[in-house]
Amino acid sequence: MNALSIKNLEKTYAGGTRALDGVSLEMPPGDFFALLGPNGAGKTTLIGIVTGLVNKSAGEVEVFGANIDREPEQARTYIGVVPQNLNINIFEKVIDIVVNQAGYYGVPRSRALPRAEKILADLNLYEKRYEPAQRLSGGMQRRLMIARALIHEPRFLILDEPTAGVDVELRRSMWGYLTGLTQQGITILLTTHYLEEAERLAKHVAIINKGSIVAQGSMEEILALHDESAHTGKLRGGRLEEVFLQLTQS
């Protein structure tokens, strides 16, 4: 059973914008999967549909076999999501944000509190647990959103640009943390504009452009698409970056 199975997913917004145009994807359990694409390609829409924040126009989505239309509650219990934009109540205390999130999944406070303290300690936020979220730095708020996403012990973690605006040192420590999660068996779907991050972390990759998947496969398969002769510019990036540009600029 796949962690995520998407078939012919389509989304047209009320204004007529077609964000997804027949996307199909499969993610095996335990995978570290990178979904890459330029701004406006449809990554956040796809994540929104999987997590229940966006209504799809057509297609099928299953999370660990639970169909998001027929068993939405079951599908959501499997998922933890770190959104692209900050969506925490900044007036709430750090510990309350995390423990309340557990509550929405039916985890009682008595069980959620020690769990929250451990996750916050793992993410170097333990000392800040009684502070209102507004007193945290941008990087700390990003880590708080990761802690919140993990509190109900999801099998599938979705990270929508989790390292955007985070300094190099912190980004590297987050890489280590995320790698540790996949070693515990958690499946991760990552979107990022830092392609070296995806190249370093992901086992599988899909590249989406204008609402359609233009390439998908293992990291090796995607890197093998690199066409040295197609390079014409003076500036050079990593191999994944070159493949990405070839696929999304054509």
């Binding site: 509650e73 959501r76 109540n89 929405y104 039916g106």
Partner: peptide
């Protein structure tokens, strides 16, 4: 407020809370 100030309503919408 939970819809427009930081969209904290999403915390509940992504959960299995009916």
């Amino acid at each position: 407020a939970s819809k427009f100030f930081a969209r904290s309503i999403d915390e509940i919408l992504v959960s299995p809370t009916p």
